[in-house]
């Protein structure tokens, strides 16, 4: 099944033009008082959701922008943002 991704600048494109950038994990933690555990959680740990997740992508063979989409990991289909947050 082909994966397509909608780039905010270039529109819907072939998924192989993009590089996956990881699960959305919120803002980078503050360095003040940061523990190895919290840093490790931010850097390495994933939820590995079998279902819809929010994630980062990089349009490496295109405009070079970084952006977030919602995608169902069991079907590889991109989900409309409004649909996903409902």
């Amino acid at each position: 099944m082909a994966l397509t991704i909608t780039c905010p600048i270039c529109g819907k494109r072939n998924g192989y033009e993009f590089r996956y950038g990881g699960e959305e994990k919120g803002p980078r933690p503050d360095e003040a008082g940061l523990t190895p555990e919290a840093w490790c959680d931010y850097v390495h740990m994933n939820n590995c959701v079998a279902g819809v997740q929010e994630e980062w992508w990089f349009h490496k063979d295109g405009c070079g922008s970084w952006f977030k989409i919602h995608r169902d990991t069991t079907t590889n289909l991109e989900i409309e943002q409004t649909e996903a947050t409902e």
Binding site: M1, T73, T74, N76
Partner: peptide, 9 residues
Amino acid sequence: DPWPNYTTL
């Protein structure tokens, strides 16, 4: 596959 998925397709 270069991105996480459970499709096994």
